[in-house]
């Protein structure tokens, strides 16, 4: 049974990240996702210290606020003349440092473990269950991830056209009257929520791996946005399964193995993608050359 819950949690994390990651990769903002996943840490710590529990609602709100603060600060520094990558670096390291200090200061009183925040412990998720709507035995992480996933699917589904246009041509989107900034902050808020609901299971740092690597892999395999989202979910879930069984075999960190599996899948796509892969392009070029010399 524990296998089932671990795989379900991992797959839900992968699905949340995959959907949002597609838009981050397309908007060339992968590293903003990286920054958000680091800088939600003080939000998690403050929400935890205020509420005294790992109560999901508090953490989701705290993280969403911190995520928006991150994006706002990056924008602010960038406008005041700092290069965008440097402003990303300043903001996330500062906020992450605040988070680590808050956790270290209170490490004695609370059971919020730094290691847990960083790598997560997906193996323990199924012990931490709560009763919601009279249903027992469902881990808390699954409830939280389920809520986030439904929210993401709803928002992206409702505003699919708007998100699509903002991803490919923000200028045109603004010209036809779509509030580009609003959708930008909406996306970033959802990224922070996804990070927080995943941090207990895969950790704040490795969640970035699932946010960036599967969508990039999917990007190499297709040119259509809809297909890209589906593919990226499938690749994320596949990395979860491969990673989990590899971790069991190697007796190593499950989250680490999941990201390594995602990287392995990316390398496969990089080499063998039908339209983009290095090997496939080489083969097709050789074939064309042979045809050319034959004729």
């Amino acid at each position: 049974m524990s296998d089932f819950w671990i795989l379900l949690t991992g797959s839900m994390v992968a699905a949340c990240c995959a959907i949002l990651g597609v838009f981050l990769v397309l908007r060339r903002m992968s590293l903003v996702g990286d920054a958000i996943s680091h800088s939600v840490l003080p939000g998690i710590a403050i929400a935890f210290l205020m509420s005294g529990t790992r109560d999901s609602a508090f953490m989701l709100i705290g993280a969403a606020v911190l995520g928006l603060v991150t994006v706002f600060l990056i924008q602010l520094f960038h406008q005041s003349g700092v290069q965008s990558d440097a402003s990303i670096g300043i903001v996330f390291t500062a906020l992450f440092a605040v988070g680590v200090i808050l956790i270290s200061l209170n490490a004695r009183q609370v059971d919020l473990d730094l290691d847990c925040v960083l790598y997560g412990e997906i193996a323990y998720t199924h012990w931490n269950t709560i009763t919601v709507l009279g249903i027992d035995y469902v881990p808390k992480a699954v409830w939280m991830l389920g809520f986030t996933l439904v929210l993401i699917v709803l928002v992206i589904g409702l505003f699919y056209k708007q998100f699509k246009l903002c991803a490919f041509d923000p200028a045109l989107a603004a010209a036809v009257g779509i509030p580009v900034a609003l959708f930008h902050y909406l996306l970033m808020g959802m990224v922070s929520m996804a990070t927080v609901s995943s941090f207990e299971s895969v950790g704040a740092i490795l969640v970035v791996g699932l946010l960036i690597i599967p969508p990039s892999t999917a990007y190499l395999l297709t040119e259509k946005l809809g297909t890209m989202i589906w593919l990226s979910i499938v690749i994320g879930v596949a990395s979860t399964f491969i990673g989990y069984y590899a971790a069991v075999m190697l007796d190593a960190s499950i989250a680490g193995c999941m990201v390594s599996a995602a990287l392995a899948l990316f390398i496969l796509a990089f080499l063998f993608s039908p339209s983009q892969g290095i090997v496939s392009r080489y083969v097709s070029r050789r074939r064309a050359a042979l045809r050319h010399t034959a004729s």
Partner: peptide, 13 residues
């Protein structure tokens, strides 16, 4: 992003 998280994942393993 890919290289950073991928390497870090391997490192954690």
């Amino acid at each position: 992003g890919i290289v950073l998280t991928g390497f870090f994942g391997i490192g954690i393993v």
